[in-house]
């Protein structure tokens, strides 16, 4: 699965934007992978600093757009979105500078 961070979120992961990851479902104790599981996996495995800049509660913090296969996750069911092999998930922090 391909994960991508931008809009400054990459700074939380040693400035690496694109992560190709392999999530072992059995090790995680789940049958299928949902966005909810993915978020906690990212928080544990990818985020190196200031996790509060990425998440609030069990979802992303306000001001972060989540795209699953190039589509706003609000259209696919947010935390309940089921993910499959080779899906592409993008996290984008909205910018405000100018």
């Amino acid at each position: 699965m391909l994960l991508e961070n931008s809009g400054g979120l990459e700074l939380l992961c040693n400035s690496v934007k694109i992560h190709e990851v392999n999530i072992n479902l059995e090790a995680e104790g789940n049958q299928k992978l949902t966005m909810k599981h993915l978020l906690s996996w990212v928080r544990t495995n990818l985020i190196k600093e200031r996790p509060e800049m990425f998440m609030k509660g069990d979802t992303v913090r306000p001001g972060v757009l989540v795209l699953v296969n190039d589509c706003d996750w609000e259209l696919s069911g947010q935390l309940d979105t089921t993910l499959e092999e080779k899906d592409v998930v993008v996290f984008i922090s909205t910018l405000h500078g100018g």
């Binding site: 400054g8 800049m53 913090r61 306000p62 001001g63 922090s93 909205t94 500078g97």
Partner: peptide, 23 residues
């Protein structure tokens, strides 16, 4: 974005920099 982001997540060009051609 019904909820504004936390101030800590709102970087500014004056603090974080910006390459002139991007804006």
């Amino acid at each position: 974005f019904p909820t504004p982001p936390p101030t800590s997540a709102c970087q500014r060009c004056a603090d974080s920099g910006v390459l002139g051609v991007v804006p």
